[in-house]
Design a protein around this nucleic acid. Sequence first.
DNA 1: GTTTTAATTTAGATTTGCCTAAAAAAATAT
DNA 2: ATATTTTTTTAGGCAAATCTAAATTAAAAC
Lengths: 220, 220
Amino acid sequence: MLNYSTSEENYIKAIYHLQKEGTVTTNELAAELSTRPASVTDMMKKLRTKKLVHYEAYKGFRLTPEGRKLALIIIRRHRLWEFFLAEKLKFSWDEVHAVAEDLEHVSSKKLIDKLDEFLGFPRYDPHGDPIPDANGKIETSKQVCLIDLPLNKAAVVCYVSDQSTEMLELLSHKKIGIGTRLEIKKKFSFDQSLEIKLRQQSATTISGDLAKNIFVKYDE
Amino acid sequence: MLNYSTSEENYIKAIYHLQKEGTVTTNELAAELSTRPASVTDMMKKLRTKKLVHYEAYKGFRLTPEGRKLALIIIRRHRLWEFFLAEKLKFSWDEVHAVAEDLEHVSSKKLIDKLDEFLGFPRYDPHGDPIPDANGKIETSKQVCLIDLPLNKAAVVCYVSDQSTEMLELLSHKKIGIGTRLEIKKKFSFDQSLEIKLRQQSATTISGDLAKNIFVKYDE
DNA sequence: GTTTTAATTTAGATTTGCCTAAAAAAATAT
DNA sequence: ATATTTTTTTAGGCAAATCTAAATTAAAAC
Ligand SMILES: [Mn+2]
Ligand SMILES: [Mn+2]
Ligand SMILES: [Mn+2]
Ligand SMILES: [Mn+2]
């Protein structure tokens, strides 16, 4: 496996996190990395020649299978170091991320696999996120009914059980679809209705009947 | 404290190790870092403006007190990581150096101090080299009489007790002086004479009477 | 003390990763 | 459909760290 620069690794990891909602755009990635859109375009051309991203001008980008594999390696390093810092060095959970941002770029495979063993093959980092194993396999968060989603926990809509025309009409009016990111702000036990907040929109209310038919996965 | 690049840190550390024998030259440093003399000159100008080295064109360089302080911070990181790798992750002693070369550039002070504590404040790395403490204090190898130096252990002449003309004449004939690097190849119990090898020269023999007056420190 | 050799520095390029400003393309509004 | 706004890309430049080749200085040899 080739060796990638810190900068390349940061881009790959950021794309991995953003692409859960489909194609990643130049501005999104620039914001995520606190850099400029022009820099993103430059880097995308480079990552394309290295076959880590699919990219066509003006059409956004996604990781190739190779790119995804690399992303999972970096995430594995990051989360194992976070676990080490919290568990062994007694860092508090909110301090681990910044240090892990540096440690994650030390690329020795043996180091990471031995660290994993030393830590007892932990499955989750201090934030509850799953740690990919040595083969790059990562636990996919299982889907849960929107009714059962905890308050203020970011989630992504992944399935709708009732697909009748009436249901779809209601969903489209509420601007909810597969991939929509949302969280629950309030639960009203009187009628099981929920106040939910869609990403980058104001709050809205949906009935319990609707919520029962929506399934989500936890968002990272 | 400012933040230094990986490259700057590697230069500073290399100068620290080389300057035990006086002024460091451009070619020496280039060889040590597997780079070109022209690159060394460029970097020395830069480190001079940052007040980390004393440097005048054609006259070699040495660390300033600031530079030495930085060097000891980097060496502390390096050796603590080497200890961690050997002790906790069960790396063999010859594998630790390469990985520590990367880890040493992660610059969080808190990380290193907590790592030190986690490891139980080890005093020596897996190669037997002393680990600087959190204040940058490092154990200076104490001087020992040449008679007592173990076989094949590299050492540097640091003191000569008899400074008579006759003694100095003999020393200069043997090309031995303060800073000379040597090791003992054989000890003859019959007359306490020693076969010693001076760095980059062929072996020679000295009498026990001479050896008794020469004091050395272990070389790193 | 010249001359020759070796060490060091300068000059000029290159690569990586970033930037600003301008141009081009796509999306949105009228 | 056209005009306006937003997004994205291109063009040109900059700083860090490296290089090669040429010039300069210092050291060694004669
Ligand atoms: Mn993190
Ligand atoms: Mn985490
Ligand atoms: Mn080492
Ligand atoms: Mn060591």
